[in-house]
């Protein structure tokens, strides 16, 4: 419903009801519109707020964390959180079995988790876009070859694929990032290809082609920006999967290795204390849950705000 076009039929605007705006409204910018739709979703706002907190902690870990994540306080082994019996104010969330401050380790863990997400999703998305656009643009055998490779990757359950990649590359934080990037690759390729195929049939692409745009210009300047919405949503949701998978790999001893303060690794190395010191097991889990939840909430909110089908 566009008010501006209705106004052309009005003979004498002076007597119209006050609800009718006299000046044609300029449509809001896409970003403002996105923010307006996103803001309506309380869950999405909560997710965004949480993500911002995590980003803040990750960036300023050096200043926020009270201690070094690997410094061991031998006189303070397995100290419970400050509010629990036997807790000390100097270690707000207690200490782990070798006397390291839990709070500091969790804060540095935030940095690691976000870094894993950023690197693996960054890798996966850029490669996925290139492959997806190539498949859509070239079509034919190239398309089939790329998509069949993606089918192979999709046939393996995601964690199993990550484990397989680790089996080749060997355990470690960096290799975990590569593994997660490979696991997520098919979704980006398929998404880009589908969106690009949809756009390629539009008239503006034909116009651009007629105007003499080369394939690179056509795909990256004309088509790609119009495929971004689903990719952004996928990237946000993929971020949460990346954090979850990285923690799972860490937990299995295939990801980050101790003493790296990665949440999953922290959890697995404290398993034997599950009955005696609940905090060393519970707190990293809560951190993982909150981070994953935050990105999922934000991703869902973005999808609802970007999906024109759900609007109105």
């Amino acid at each position: 419903m566009t008010n501006s076009s209705d106004n052309t039929a009005v003979a004498d605007p002076g007597t119209l009801s006050p609800l009718n705006p006299l000046n044609p409204i300029t449509p809001p910018s896409p970003l403002a519109e996105l923010w307006r739709d996103f803001r309506r979703n309380r869950g999405a706002l909560l997710g965004l707020a949480l993500v911002l907190v995590f980003v803040f902690l990750a960036v300023f870990a050096n200043w926020v964390a009270p201690y070094s994540p690997i410094e061991q306080y031998r006189e303070a082994i397995l100290v419970p959180p400050a509010w629990a019996e036997g807790g000390r104010m100097q270690f707000l969330l207690g200490t782990d079995p070798v006397g390291r401050d839990m709070l500091s380790r969790l804060i540095y863990g935030t940095r690691l988790s976000l870094l894993i997400g950023l690197v693996s999703i960054g890798l996966s998305m850029s490669l996925g876009i290139v492959l997806g656009l190539t498949a859509a643009y070239r079509g034919g055998k190239t398309d089939i070859a790329i998509m069949r490779c993606m089918d192979v990757l999709m046939a393996l359950p995601s964690l199993l694929l990550a484990v397989a990649v680790i089996a080749i590359l060997g355990p470690g934080l960096i290799n975990a990032m590569y593994a997660i990037a490979i696991v997520q690759l098919p979704s980006f390729v398929r998404l880009t290809r589908a969106a690009a195929l949809g756009e390629l049939s539009r008239d503006y692409v034909t116009a651009s082609r007629i105007a003499g745009a080369g394939p690179l210009r056509l795909m990256f300047i004309a088509v790609l920006p119009n495929c971004l919405a689903p990719l952004i949503v996928q990237a946000t949701l993929g971020f949460s999967t990346a954090i979850l998978d990285a923690a799972a790999l860490g937990f299995l001893g295939l990801g980050a290795q101790p003493p790296t303060p990665e949440w999953g690794t922290m959890l697995s190395s404290a398993l034997e204390f599950i009955q005696s010191a609940w905090w060393v097991v519970s707190l990293p889990g809560i951190a993982i849950l909150l981070a994953v939840l935050a990105f999922n909430l934000m991703g869902d909110g973005l999808r609802d705000a970007l999906d024109p089908k759900l609007k109105r």
């Binding site: 979850l244 009955q275 609940w278 519970s282 889990g285 993982i288 849950l289 994953v292």
Partner: peptide, 22 residues
Amino acid sequence: SLAGYSMPIFWWALLLILFFSV
């Protein structure tokens, strides 16, 4: 379901053991 969807299941399993078994 959103919480379940976001749950690190290795941790969730530990919580279940801690509560129901221990």
